[in-house]
Every structure is written in structure tokens, then in C-alpha cells.
Simulated scan of single mutants.
Amino acid sequence: MADGDTGGEAEPGYEQARDELAQVVARLEAGGLSLEDSLALWERGETLARTCERHLAGARERVETVLHEAGADDDGTARG
């Protein structure tokens, strides 16, 4: 993405981002990190959360499209 968070790496898939986010949260909750390490992890978590949100928004859009098309087919609307 253009915001520079990925450092040129490909964006992870939803499951990969979700799993890494869970690891980040667990490390933050465990404590014992320096302030700098905690901030870096928090920033990574924010990036991963945005990635998950993008994937979920795309999935939601696909489901809504399919449901809309199915509804159009059910009410007799001609589809070409």
C-alpha cells in the first residue's frame, strides 16, 4: 500500500494478518517490553488491524453483490 507501512512487502492475507495480530496482542498483554518495543508492536498491530479490515470489507462487498444478484434473479429480473 502507498502509506509506507509494508516496506515494499506484499500485504498478508486475512488469516496471516489475523494470526500475527493475535501474536502482537499477546506480546503486548504479557508486558515486560521496553516503551520503544511496545510502541513498535502497537504500530504493527494497527497496520495488521487495517489489513484485516480491508480484507473483511472486500469480503462483505462480494457477499452483498452475490445477494443482490440472487435477489434480482429471484424477482424475475432478466439478467444478460
Rank of each mutant, 00 (worst) to 15 (best):
M1A: 14
D3V: 00
D3S: 09
D3R: 07
G4D: 07
G4E: 06
D5G: 06
D5V: 07
D5K: 13
G7V: 02
G8W: 03
G8A: 04
E9Y: 07
E9D: 15
A10T: 11
A10M: 10
E11M: 14
P12K: 02
P12T: 05
Y14F: 15
E15D: 13
E15I: 07
R18E: 10
D19I: 05
D19Y: 06
D19E: 14
L21F: 13
Q23F: 03
Q23N: 12
V24K: 00
V25Y: 04
A26C: 01
L28C: 04
A30D: 10
G31D: 02
G32E: 02
L35C: 04
L35H: 12
D37N: 08
D37W: 01
S38P: 00
L39V: 08
A40W: 06
L41R: 05
R44S: 02
E46G: 11
T47F: 12
T47G: 05
T47S: 09
A49D: 09
R50S: 07
R50T: 04
C52K: 06
C52I: 09
E53W: 11
L56H: 03
G58I: 03
A59E: 14
A59L: 14
A59S: 11
E61G: 08
E61W: 05
R62Q: 15
R62S: 10
V63A: 06
V63L: 14
E64D: 14
E64C: 02
T65D: 09
T65K: 13
V66P: 00
A70H: 08
G71K: 00
A72Y: 00
A72L: 14
A72G: 01
D73E: 15
D74V: 11
D75P: 00
G76F: 01
A78T: 11
A78W: 07
